[in-house]
Write a protein that binds this DNA or RNA. Structure first.
Lengths: 135, 135
DNA sequence: TGGACACCCTGAAGTGGCTTCAGGGTCAAG
DNA sequence: CTTGACCCTGAAGCCACTTCAGGGTGTCCA
């Protein structure tokens, strides 16, 4: 299998696959006589692992850690559980932040109706103001 | 007022202020005899505008657009309203994504209890699998 | 007078996770 | 024998900063 096929199979741009190889997430692929990368099922499995992690918004460093366990099946997996817990906590935190933001934006949005002169736009006026001290 | 004071007043690192100047978001500051940047209230107002926008997670390009209206008080502000609507929609989309992610992560988390050998860890096993076709 | 220390300056490089670009080689079909 | 799809490399670009290296300035205290 060459790189384009692998990419299409897993929905990953070929540049990204090459990037993962440079970063050491994927082992260097063997090469055909014409210097094309050649992949087998093992590569596809590993790439799928990475892609799944990325779909869950993990950083490449987190993926690297998880791959270490993937590669050492006899190692205790406690750290894997912890890593996931931390990641879930991060996502929850970000959701909370974005909810707060959404509220602020909606309040800001109500400060104006379209069609005014910018000098009297309530949105722009609010953006100029000192932020209200959050109680 | 010099750059450190301005930064402390608005809670912005001095490097960020210099960066905004380089990017053209802030006008070039006048200089003291010792080549230190000198700021007045107008600068502080403009920087506060930028900081408020960034706190709402707007990109610097969005901020640039809004500053155009800030600088042209007679211009119609319809586009300001639209810009905000678009930004709110983006935030809402991201929240929805993260919620979906959170659910997936929690399901994944249940696949294992800590203390197993990685080879039998349900989390790692799930990460190796082909993603279920979303209905 | 001198030295410690906080502040300021510049330009360049690093961050993450790719993406894009420039400039080329390979290979099968028509 | 040319067209087009594919592959290769190394470097630069993206965003919004942050960090670093290497230096100047200004004030306080001894």
């Amino acid at each position: 299998m060459q790189i384009g096929q692998l990419g299409r199979a897993l929905g990953v741009p070929v540049e990204t696959i090459r990037y993962y190889e440079r970063e050491g997430l994927l082992p260097r692929a063997e090469r055909s006589t014409s210097n094309y990368r050649v992949y087998g099922e093992a590569h596809a499995d590993r790439l799928r692992f990475i892609v799944n992690c990325r779909a869950l918004d993990m950083t490449l460093d987190e993926v690297r850690s998880l791959l270490d366990y993937h590669d050492a099946p006899s190692k205790d997996c406690t750290r894997v559980n912890e890593l996931l817990d931390e990641h879930i906590a991060q996502v929850a935190t970000r959701i909370a932040e974005l909810h707060r933001l959404e509220g602020q934006l909606q309040r800001l949005r109500k400060a104006c109706r379209r069609g005014k002169a910018s000098g009297h736009c309530g949105i722009l006026r609010s953006l100029r103001q000192r932020p209200a001290a959050p109680k």
